[in-house]
Nucleic acid binder design. Sequence first.
DNA 1: GCCTCGATTGACT
DNA 2: GTCAATCGAGGCA
Length: 185
Amino acid sequence: MKKLPRPFYSRDTITVAKEMLGKFLVKDGMIGKIVETEAYLGVNDKASHASWRKRETCAPIWGPAGYTYIHFTYGMYYMFDIVTEGKGIPASVLIRALEPIILSPAKDLTNSTSGPGRLTKAFGITKIHNNHDLTTSDTFYIAKDDSTSKIEIVETTRIGIDYAKEYKSKLWRFYIKGNKFISRK
DNA sequence: GCCTCGATTGACT
DNA sequence: GTCAATCGAGGCA
């Protein structure tokens, strides 16, 4: 398992979102394979927080690539984003689902990683992990293995953003075809 | 201060 | 299919 370097994240957001599939999220000994992502691009994307939230509120996504952006919503769930592109460009990739590889033995987590609110709960990700540099940390980062297995990617529409009408139909959600841990069909 | 609503989930009719 | 849980940001006063 090799930690992904910053140049991986400093590219076109859709490219990063696709290539993130099949990579591994590592945190405090727990490992989950990333099987579903969504791309959120810049100020012109009305579904992105960057277009309608105050700049300070979502500050990390305006910063350098490879940092986390943790967003709290509905009073009980955290969303987990990874910042892409570069400083001054508010783009990010939302991690929506993981395939559990190793979960915490202490907490008896029941494979509950199929959905953005559930995977953050399972991995114990909270707002204290906001603006965390994934490329320098040894306890919380994204890694790849040496397998060369090919992944079939499905492109579809994003979820839960009905308020952004004209962007609702964009195919900016990606998942691994046939994987059982996708959050929705 | 008061009100509304959200990149969701799970329980229920 | 509907709906409550639960809290912080943002709009308005």
